[in-house]
């Protein structure tokens, strides 16, 4: 059971990570926040994105043996990146929920 919880956490961290990494690009930021104008703080978004990428790996390692965890992690990142791309093209509003206001503020 705890294994399943770690895996769900890893999947969520992967989606959050990919969302922030995507939003760090001007064109994707514009898709989600058309009114905000220019991208507020690119490096903060990128840094948090990368941090969650690592966090996702840590969660995978908690769930499985390292040899298995590395496969789960890489595949989760693939699915997360694809999901974020699909959200951006079909329901960009969804990413507003994922993106807390902290990034919306100008640094």
């Amino acid at each position: 059971m705890t294994e399943a919880i770690w895996l769900v956490a890893a999947a969520m961290a992967a989606v959050l990570s990919m969302s922030w990494l995507a939003l760090a690009y001007e064109n994707h930021w514009q898709q989600v926040f058309p009114q905000t104008g220019t991208l507020p703080n690119r490096s903060r978004l990128k840094l948090t994105g990368w941090a969650f990428l690592l966090l996702s790996a840590v969660f995978c390692l908690n769930a499985d043996h390292p040899s298995m965890a590395v496969l789960v992690w890489v595949m989760l990142l693939t699915v997360a990146a694809f999901s974020v791309a699909m959200m951006l093209s079909h329901r960009p509003g969804l990413l507003k929920m994922i993106c807390p206001p902290l990034f919306a503020a100008r640094a």
Binding site: A22, V74, T78, F82, V84, A85, S89, H90
Partner: peptide, 28 residues
Amino acid sequence: FFTFRPWKNLFRSSLDLHNMTGVVALPF
């Protein structure tokens, strides 16, 4: 990496999807 524009013409949107599915699953 995250670009898919289904509203563009068939060539452009297919190219987006081709690149994206190739790249996001590159390790696989």
